[in-house]
Design a protein around this nucleic acid. Sequence first.
DNA 1: TATAATATAGTCAAGATTAGTCAAAGTCAA
DNA 2: TTGACTTTGACTAATCTTGACTATATTATA
Lengths: 156, 156
Amino acid sequence: MPSRNISDIIEQYLKRILSKNNQIEIRRSEIATLFNCVPSQINYVINTRFTIQQGYRVESKRGGGGYIRIMKIAFVDQQNLIDSIINEVDTHISERNALIIIHQLYDEGIISQKIGNMMYAVLSHNTLNCKDKAAENKLRATLLVAMLTSLRYKRQ
Amino acid sequence: MPSRNISDIIEQYLKRILSKNNQIEIRRSEIATLFNCVPSQINYVINTRFTIQQGYRVESKRGGGGYIRIMKIAFVDQQNLIDSIINEVDTHISERNALIIIHQLYDEGIISQKIGNMMYAVLSHNTLNCKDKAAENKLRATLLVAMLTSLRYKRQ
DNA sequence: TATAATATAGTCAAGATTAGTCAAAGTCAA
DNA sequence: TTGACTTTGACTAATCTTGACTATATTATA
């Protein structure tokens, strides 16, 4: 695995630790110093190589005692099914079609009624209520994909 | 989980006592001396980590024999807690405060980790990502209230 | 009792310490 | 040579720390 750029090297460094610990907490500036790069390079590495889709969750805090915490995520069994549903969702989606997807999730046993209710509460026209329909459908798709993505993994 | 700043350490100290006593009375200056910080640091800790939203109530008295009393709030039932949280949510809410609310719902056993993950996925800055911060905080509040409201219904 | 002295806690803003954003410049492979 | 990816740094934002000043309660004193 030849890595000729710093980003790859930092990625490998972090993932090696994560293969043992499944959670790490770093100081951005420390890592930057360690690899002799600017601090914002760490953000670049995290944004390109530690995304939710890649199975990582990242939390951070600024200020004194600040940190960046990276957690490895375990995926649920129905991951493939959820992925295929995510692919169905376009950049825009109507309330009606969103509801169909919620029902599908329930029928497949992926979500409970409680979660289904919550999803509908978020995606309903009543809640989103944008000025124009296109904007609303776009926001709805964004939120739905975010929710579907969250269903892909189980925390710890 | 290493805490590198005094505020976190003081928070942990107080919450450990509160996990046993559910009420604690301190002298601001004593705690400040104990942790080698200025007295107003205690106010900072209380204002950021012992709010109503986090399930604490604080009383104090100045002058001779003054004190700060921190009490863990006991909610009559879940319905009650949800309602009070809905009331506290303003027209705008930051990601940080939203996360605090999600944590409290989880701590009180109202939501599962799965729902908590989903709520966070919806409310995170990463997902909402509006042009200006005010708009984002407003949308976040709308969505949070919708989700909280959906939790009030008991089906299944 | 009225007032002064003392003992607490509260507020607020400046400064310190982190991390985040964004766009320009650089690099490299197709 | 172009386009995607990487690197860099100036600027921004969030959080924590500190201390001067304020507010309030109690106790001592005139």
